[in-house]
């Protein structure tokens, strides 16, 4: 009896560790050339956006004529680990907010500048620069009970069948991860490299743009960038990838 209890405890402890080992970054599915491109900061085209983001960070703008640096100082200190814990709760609106949304908020409310466009160059560069400060840090979703509903919504969307092809995200990214769709390996859909440089896009793009790609492949109507649904999916995927290392700005095929 005692021995059995002991065995149950051992298995109980071993399982989460085993499940963790089964998770693979999209990086692991790439060819050696693309991996080398990501790893070399002087060959990774995402670094061009990081540099641009750094310039924007230090440039006063808006009616307030304040730069991001004027309030946040040295980003290598103040923004370290920040990207690893978004989406988070926004106390004011009592809803989940993604990192891009937080940057828009500072741009509009604190710099009194026009709201940057989602997927626009300005917001992507700033997000890449802020994200870069958390590179190699583990994804650490906030321990905030108020995010539970958002994550549950994301989990439901992830396994819901959608679109004319009647696929769910989970059918590809859980059931067939490691397989192929045409020539492309199907990754596990981890959000750990964004914003990232996708060779097919020939540019930097956000996680929500990636959702749009997969959803139009499913012939479903893509969630608008910054929508409740897109942020819920993001919050779910970040929780699912908790502990995995951020690679921002990653490169993907």
């Amino acid at each position: 009896m005692n021995r059995l209890a002991c065995l149950v405890v051992v298995i109980g402890m071993a399982l989460p560790a085993f499940a963790q080992d089964a998770r693979k970054s999209g990086f692991d599915y790439m060819g050696p050339d693309t991996q080398a491109m990501q790893k070399d900061d002087l060959a990774n085209p995402g670094m061009l956006s990081v540099l641009e983001g750094e310039t924007l960070w230090n440039t006063p703008t808006g009616k307030a004529q304040k730069s991001c640096a004027a309030c946040h100082g040295d980003a290598t200190q103040s923004m370290k680990g920040v990207a690893a814990r978004y989406p988070a709760m926004d106390d004011k609106t009592q809803s989940a907010i993604d990192l891009a949304g937080r940057i828009i908020q500072c741009r509009v409310e604190r710099q009194e500048a026009p709201a940057p466009q989602r997927e626009g160059r300005e917001l992507l560069s700033l997000s890449a620069f802020v994200g870069r400060q958390s590179r190699d840090m583990p994804i650490s979703p906030p321990q905030d009970a108020k995010l539970a509903a958002t994550r549950a919504q994301g989990a439901a969307l992830y396994s819901a069948r959608m679109g004319q092809l009647n696929f769910s995200c989970a059918q590809c990214h859980d059931d067939n991860a490691g397989g192929h769709l045409g020539a492309a390996p199907i990754p596990q859909a981890h959000p750990n490299g964004y914003p990232l440089y996708r060779l097919e896009w020939q540019s930097l793009g956000s996680l929500q743009r990636r959702f749009r790609n997969c959803m139009s492949g499913m012939r479903a109507e893509p969630f608008a960038a910054g929508s409740t649904e897109a942020i819920a999916l993001e919050a779910f995927l970040m929780e699912r990838a908790a502990g995995m290392k951020l690679e921002t700005p990653a490169v993907r095929p």
Binding site: L42, A43, P45, M47, L48, E52, Q202
Partner: peptide, 9 residues
């Protein structure tokens, strides 16, 4: 020598 130029091409 390696060079990477930002350009839309």
């Amino acid at each position: 020598i390696k060079t990477l130029m930002s350009h839309p091409m």
